[in-house]
Design a protein around this nucleic acid. Sequence first.
DNA 1: CTGAAAGCGCTTACAG
DNA 2: CTGAAAGCGCTTACAG
Lengths: 334, 334
Amino acid sequence: MKEKVNMDMIAQLFNVSIVTVSKALNDKDGVSEELREKIKQTAIDLGYRPNNAAKSLKTQRIYNIGILIANRYVGSQEAYYFRVCGEIIKKLMVLGYSGIMEILMTEDEKDNKLPRMFLESKVDGMIILGQLEESYLRKLEEIDFPMIYTDFYVNYSNVDSIISDNFFSSYQLTVSLIEQGHKNIGFVGNIYSTSSIQDRYLGYYKALLENNINLNSEYIVSDRDGLGKLIELKLPKHMPTAFVANCDQVGYQLINTLKKQGFSVPKDISVVSFDNTFYSTLAEPQITTVDNSVEEMVQTATKIIVKKVENPAKTYGRIFIKGKIIIRDSSQKI
Amino acid sequence: MKEKVNMDMIAQLFNVSIVTVSKALNDKDGVSEELREKIKQTAIDLGYRPNNAAKSLKTQRIYNIGILIANRYVGSQEAYYFRVCGEIIKKLMVLGYSGIMEILMTEDEKDNKLPRMFLESKVDGMIILGQLEESYLRKLEEIDFPMIYTDFYVNYSNVDSIISDNFFSSYQLTVSLIEQGHKNIGFVGNIYSTSSIQDRYLGYYKALLENNINLNSEYIVSDRDGLGKLIELKLPKHMPTAFVANCDQVGYQLINTLKKQGFSVPKDISVVSFDNTFYSTLAEPQITTVDNSVEEMVQTATKIIVKKVENPAKTYGRIFIKGKIIIRDSSQKI
DNA sequence: CTGAAAGCGCTTACAG
DNA sequence: CTGAAAGCGCTTACAG
């Protein structure tokens, strides 16, 4: 094992102080260009790696951002949150930060246990990815620590959130069905389950209202239980001519259920959904859906969390990221 | 913003030294039980969080383990590596470590750029998750840093690896087909692409050899190009009665291709594959596959990397994790 | 049981 | 342009 090299070693090599080495390596004023270059080269040759912990002790910044995600989102078959995590980590890197991931176990969520990375001072701020239980979020908000909610928001808090503009996307998506001549349009999703589903429902409802279409409660089909577990879809007796499904997976499930009952999609019934995931292209026919632009969401979330680390007092409120409708084959004119 | 609380503050509150506070909080000898309890309670009341960076400066350990994963594995539709990452992070937490994820961009891999988390001394060791390019791995091996390869190995190196026992699983899987009466068995996978595919191929081959079945090169169907991108399957003119597909996704693809060509699975042709992912249950019929026991792999990988951090000299070699065959409906007696 | 001293590897403000 | 000094918040070995 090679001896660990530190600034002191390099300083001795050049008969200068470690202050000079520090300045040279960090591109600070106060070193001659010539000496700086020599020091930098030597650092590379020796495989010098700055000690982040030591730096952190002075600067009071550890240059890590935490990503807190509930265990239930990791276990899911859906790679969506993996993509989001990946993007977050990439963007953080560009901003000079590393990403520490922590999985919040259901039990710890119930017990309101604060994230370990926070308790052990391993992060400068946290991105909370995906909705958590209310009581847990309230606990989190007590700690007065740079945080941002990503991909969800809650009404009772003023923590900054980055969310896709579910309400507006859903409105647009439903309008597109109405423009195709549909008047009887259903919605699939447990509208009490998450803010995201609720907003999509409300956008759908707004489109109906604006077009003087009555809301038919029989057309609202639940898709999951209170814990978020998907359930079998109970379709209405009198079917609408189109459905807005609250996510691709449920859209996929819906199409399969419709097929089994002898309906043809989109000939008999059109289906549209959200998220532009795997499921939307897996379905036969492929589903007209909304792309939420993970990249833009993540770009914004990481920028803001880093800014909040530098200036915790500043707030940004709720930031909506526009979605983009992707037309495919699951919907058609009536 | 509350004032940051440190050991010194607590020490002053009790009129003791910070040494005593340190001992009390870390359950070390040399404090009366009574004082220890009081100090601990006060720490909680004040919301004291130990400064990991300061601790690290003395102990020379930062209590973070890096997870390095190539960008191409994150972009994939498959949630497999997400599950692995999630499991790693959970296991690390139990061992007292946090997980720092870093995505290796293709360009940086080509340029042999060492991981930032390593260069910035943010981790005590690294788990390399999923195969990387040879030249990059060689570069990594130069740095003499606690590392473990997970879910792959390379022949030219002696870095410890945790891998699923692809060879043996594939052997068993193929034997199960032979026991069902199959004599003409194909293999789907680019056998030059990854060690994992190659080993599965060799296990398949061993089963043939042991049963005096000739290897028919026409039955070996490539599934991906040199860069790992899946290609259209070119099926043989004379079809075998069964195929071993090198992974579920390809098994899924194979079943769809077979169906399109008018074959019935498993009536005409049996299909088995590997990994017990989403695709294996998505397929119609559901695919007989091998479960690689992510949990056991991860359990072993995290234990070993932590041991290596404590004792870098010790080596563990290649550790094989046994898979388990999961019988489903895609294979049957001939 | 308690604590003074040294030190981990840096950065920062200041003096020359 | 260069560096001495102080200090970030801990832990460790040792003395009492």
